[in-house]
Design a protein around this nucleic acid. Structure first.
Length: 413
DNA sequence: TAACGAGATTTACCATGGGA
DNA sequence: TCCCATGGTAAATCTCGTTA
């Protein structure tokens, strides 16, 4: 049973209430030294950021906690600024303020998104309720794991709210659609399910790669833009910053379609909308001779062509090589976020899969099952080749055409 | 790449029922 | 009687795959 279940006992609810009270009291106590601290010279109040960082009110632990909190705030701000540079400028949301617990939706923030969960949402056609789950987590600033339904309704449906994504009626439909996968609910509250349980519900066997920061403004737009960013988060997760610029390993559109359930045409549309850059890749094989030309034509089909090496980049100048087009690489724009609890989530996810809860265990998708074929350099490719000389491998030689495409060297096969 | 059409999603309007 | 939540229906809008 989920600890956040609406069928939780009255003792659990009472304990939760007590916890909130204690938290509020602790917050008040902590607030005193911060607001009471004054400059010895001017007598004016000093903001936390201006206090001598070594002080920590005579507590190393407090200093450490406050420094980490301060850094986290800075990190989040930097991530949002970087992410938001290619979106419309963030607006300040207006949400009804008459309810004392109504959170003020902050559209300048970003939501941490695990790309495997994003692909699961697309694959299971649960992008719309999934978006509500992500925004609900964003609204749940205190991390309580639940939200009042009336507050969610105000923030996500009122025309004056910058987080408006649909009307009340549609939100009711979405809440019904996502029940059991993203949340459980009672009359007044929505109990958000954990990332591990949502992943399991979406048929994801394991979270791989880096989570990314998706701007709230991207999710609060139309459903098309939200879907585009869910799809693009996968590419952003695979994008790595190198001294030569952003890079990612090639991946075929068919593979992408299998992982995301998004067809090739829609993939291109999403890439345009979320500003994912597609980079073509070409492989260079053996010197063009009649026998290997026939062999390669048989396996590579229409992708095969002949490349004359005028500059001698492959060997002797003027030799002709067999070359063929490889799948594209995709450079996403979302910033990476720390893996954080990913290891723990995966452990929980593994337990859920092993328990064999009725449902889609057999269909669980594990991205690790995809065979690694592309390597960033010859050394890594050679190591793999040494273990399995039969397998066809590629390693990246260089990029050309102002980074528009890359040339790969074939190994084995 | 654009046009097209089928299907899905979203919204508006209205009716109904329960509670105060 | 009023207010609010819910649900049925139809129309508008959006998404996505196919085709040229």
């Amino acid at each position: 049973m989920d600890g956040r279940s609406p069928t939780a006992s009255s003792q659990l609810l009472a304990a939760n209430q007590r916890l909130l009270q204690l938290r509020a009291q602790a917050g008040k106590r902590r607030a005193i030294p911060i607001t009471a601290h004054r400059s010895p010279n001017t007598g004016q109040r000093l903001p936390f950021t201006q206090l001598p960082s070594h002080l920590g009110w005579e507590s190393e632990r407090v200093t450490g906690v406050l420094r980490r909190a301060s850094n986290r705030q800075k990190d989040a701000k930097t991530a949002v600024e970087a992410d938001g540079s290619w979106l419309t400028p963030p607006e300040r949301a207006e949400c009804p303020q008459n309810a004392p617990e109504t959170p003020q939706p902050d559209v300048s923030g970003a939501v941490k998104l695990y790309p495997d969960i994003a692909l699961g949402m697309l694959r299971q056609e649960m992008a719309a309720p999934g978006r509500v789950w992500l925004l609900a987590h964003h609204l749940d600033r205190e991390g309580r794991g639940w939200l009042r339904i009336d507050i969610i309704t105000r923030c996500l449906t009122e025309k004056s709210s910058s987080l408006r994504i649909c009307g009340k009626r549609q939100l009711r439909n979405l809440l019904r659609q996502g029940e059991g996968v993203f949340w459980t609910r009672d009359k007044t509250r929505l109990w958000l399910r954990s990332a591990a349980k949502v992943a399991y519900g979406l048929g994801v066997a394991r979270l791989t790669g880096r989570p990314v920061a998706v701007p709230v403004t991207a999710l609060a737009g139309g459903i098309g833009a939200a879907r585009a960013h869910l799809y693009a988060s996968f590419h952003s997760s695979r994008t790595k910053e190198t001294p030569q610029g952003a890079q990612s390993m090639p991946i075929a559109r068919d593979t992408l379609a299998g992982l995301s359930g998004v067809g090739c045409v829609s993939q291109r549309t999403y890439e345009r909308r979320a500003r994912v850059k597609a980079q073509a890749n070409f492989a260079v094989g053996d010197v063009a001779q009649e026998e290997n030309r026939e062999n390669q034509a048989w396996t590579k089909g229409r992708a095969l062509f002949e490349l004359k090496d005028y500059r001698g980049q492959q060997g002797r100048k003027g030799k002709t090589y067999l070359a063929w087009q490889l799948p594209n690489s995709y450079i996403g724009k979302h910033q990476h976020r720390p893996k954080g609890r990913q290891k723990r989530i995966n452990r929980e996810l593994k337990d859920l899969v092993m328990k064999g809860m009725p449902g889609n265990v057999a269909e669980a998708v594990d991205r690790r099952a995809l065979e690694k074929v592309y390597y960033p350099n010859g050394k890594l490719a050679a190591q793999k080749y040494g273990r399995n000389p039969e397998q066809e491998l590629y390693w990246q030689r260089h990029r050309t055409g102002n980074g528009r495409f890359a040339v790969w060297q074939q190994l084995g096969g």
